[in-house]
């Protein structure tokens, strides 16, 4: 096993979108408890360097597989599909309309300093994402429709960005309250 091994193999998990998160947690901790630099403090330099590389790799792998969208993108990249490359696909007008509505709503809540509305938007978006994750699972695991999955992943990248913006706005409002 070398450092370039894929993340699913590293954790001995099936190469699917649906994974057992509890199992992922357990595998991650098992690996870290072997490779972490704290376990190799008194070793020679080569072993210490190797331990750091493995531990960093395990962290990267864990983070990638833990987040649904990251996991989907990783699966797509293993299948030779990169959602980033699908950037030329034309977005459906419905999706674009929906995006604009979302952004307007966030903008409005920001200007009004409406904390509760932002929280509500955050929750709605979370639910939306969850629904889409189920869709991703079906596209990737059941139908192996990578083209459609890549398109959906690309749309989800927009939604996650939006979620990050809502969270940032919430943080800014809270900062305003603190000062």
């Amino acid at each position: 096993m070398d450092l370039t091994v894929d993340f699913f193999t590293l954790f001995r998990l099936p190469r699917t979108f649906r994974i057992d998160l509890a199992e992922l947690d357990a595998r991650y901790l098992e690996i870290q408890s072997q490779v972490h630099p704290d376990r190799h403090v008194r070793a020679g330099e080569g072993e210490r360097r190797l331990s750091m590389q493995w531990a960093a790799r395990a962290n990267e792998a864990y983070l990638t597989l833990k987040k649904p969208l990251e996991r989907a993108r990783y699966l797509l990249s293993l299948a030779g599909r990169d959602p980033e490359i699908e950037r030329n696909t034309i977005m459906e007008p419905e999706f674009l309309m929906e995006q604009m509505e979302w952004r307007e709503a966030v903008q409005e809540a920001r200007q009004g300093g409406d904390h509760h509305e932002l929280e509500r938007l955050h929750h709605r978006l979370r639910l939306d994402l969850k629904k889409h994750h189920a869709e991703l699972a079906s596209l990737l695991d059941d139908r192996q429709d990578y083209a459609a999955a890549a398109g959906l992943a690309r749309r989800l990248m927009f939604l996650e960005k939006l979620l990050a913006e809502i969270d940032k706005t919430l943080a800014e409002l809270e900062d305003g309250m603190d000062n």
């Binding site: 096993m1 070398d2 590293l10 954790f11 001995r12 595998r27 098992e30 690996i31 408890s33 072997q34 490779v35 070793a43 020679g44 330099e45 080569g46 072993e47 190797l50 331990s51 493995w54």
Partner: peptide, 27 residues
């Protein structure tokens, strides 16, 4: 010199540790 002589050994040990962890056993 000793560090160099043990580099490959360290890599094999790490590999074994990881495999061991995943097999559900400590090394």
């Amino acid at each position: 010199a000793l560090a160099r002589a043990t580099d490959e050994f360290a890599a094999r040990r790490m590999d074994r540790a990881i495999r061991g962890a995943l097999a559900g056993h400590k090394i």
